[in-house]
């Protein structure tokens, strides 16, 4: 694909099509958040604060997920530590 094709390709996508794509992504993301219990974001924040006392990490290095399996739920905690 040469540079002219590139611009032609870009031009083809209307602003409405861009809007639709962006909406599909954000709506899917927000629906995923919705099914989680309300306390998860706070839990994640507090965990980050505790870990930060010892290791310097970013908020997105702690992942908290709740999974329902039959009549029990599993809280999965994933902490990525920085390279030493």
């Amino acid at each position: 694909m040469n540079i002219f094709d590139f611009f032609r390709e870009r031009k083809k996508q209307s602003s409405a099509a861009v809007a639709k794509e962006r909406l599909q992504i954000i709506v899917a993301h927000e629906r995923g958040q919705r099914s989680k219990p309300d306390y998860l974001p706070d839990l994640q924040k507090e965990l980050v604060e505790v870990i930060r006392k010892y290791v310097n990490i970013d908020i997105d290095q702690v992942q908290v997920a709740l999974e329902n399996q039959g009549n029990c739920s599993i809280l999965e905690l994933n902490v990525t530590l920085p390279d030493r």
Partner: peptide, 17 residues
């Protein structure tokens, strides 16, 4: 505006929601 691609169409909104 929908026909010009400037506005989301009915099908788009239906599909998303």
């Amino acid at each position: 505006r929908v026909s010009k691609g400037e506005m989301l169409g009915v099908e788009d909104v239906e599909e998303i929601l």
